[in-house]
Design a protein around this nucleic acid. Sequence first.
DNA 1: GGATATTGGTTGAAAATGTAACTATCAACG
DNA 2: CGTTGATAGTTACATTTTCAACCAATATCC
Lengths: 142, 142
Amino acid sequence: MFLKGYLPYRLNLLAELTSEKTREIYRRRHDLTRPEWRVLVNLAEAPSLTASALCERVPAHKTKVSRALAALEQRGWVTRQTDPLDRRVSHAALTLKGKRAFNHIRPEMEAATEAMLAPLSAEERATVDAGLKVLERLFGQT
Amino acid sequence: MFLKGYLPYRLNLLAELTSEKTREIYRRRHDLTRPEWRVLVNLAEAPSLTASALCERVPAHKTKVSRALAALEQRGWVTRQTDPLDRRVSHAALTLKGKRAFNHIRPEMEAATEAMLAPLSAEERATVDAGLKVLERLFGQT
DNA sequence: GGATATTGGTTGAAAATGTAACTATCAACG
DNA sequence: CGTTGATAGTTACATTTTCAACCAATATCC
C-alpha cells in the first residue's frame, strides 16, 4: 500500500492525531487560533519580538503573524510599540494579562500532551525523539 | 524552551516541511487539493469505497470527503453509484481516466519524497521509521 | 404499521488560510 | 537631494476548512 509508507502522509496524520487534544484546549477553552497560540508561546519566551522575528520562530507566514498579533493586541494580551530607529518595525510584547493567560494555559497543554504520551515507556519516548531528531536535522531545524 | 520540545509542535512542523515539495506536485501541477489527492490514493488502492469508508481511511471529516468526491467526479476521475440495498450509501470508484491520472502522479510524488530523503543513510531512515511506528502504535494506526 | 431516532451524505454560512497587492519607511546610488 | 529599490507589516480577495443544519433513506420501538 502506497500511502501508509509515505512519509509526508505519516507525519501529517500523526500531527493531526497528536494535535487533536491540545487544539481542544487553546481553541475551545481559550478561543485561540493556532497561530495565536504559537505567537503567544514565542512572546512568552522572549521579552519582545518583531513580527519578522516571530515569522521565523513560529514559524509562519507574515500574514498569519500579523493577524495573530492584531487579535492578541485586541484582546489585551499583547502591546506593540514602533521602533524609534526604524519606524517600519514594531516590537510586540506580552502584557501582564497576556503573561498570566499563558501561565494559565501552558500547564493545561503540558498535561494534555503528557496524558497522551503516558502509555509510552522511557525507551519508546527516546525512540520517538531520535526519529524526529533525524528529520529535524535533515531540515535544518536544529 | 517550551515549544521546541513539545511533540504536537514538532510533528506539525515536520509535517509541513515534508509536505511542501509534494504539495507543489498535486496542487500546482495537477490542481488537486489535499483531500482530493488523498481520496484519489485511497480509491486507487481499493476497487470501490463508500464515503464513510473514505472518511476512515483518508482520514478526514465527511464534508471534506464529500467535496473531494464531487470535484473528482466532476473531473471525470471518479464514478459513483448508489447501493441498491441501502440507497443512502453510494460506492465511489476510479474511472479509467482516474486510474491513469493516479499512475501518472504517483511516481512524481514518490520521486519527490525520495529526493527529499536522499541525504539520509539507511540507518537514519530506520531510526525515523522506528520513531513513527511507536507513535502509530500508540494511536492504533497500525 | 406509524412515530421517532439514526445514519449516509450534502449544503450553506462563518472562520481561517493563502496569495498578491498595497502602504509606509528606510537604504543606496546617481 | 531625489529617484529607485528593498523591507516591515497590513489589507483585500479567492480558496479551503469548519461547523451546524439539513435531506433522504433506513432502523427501532411501541
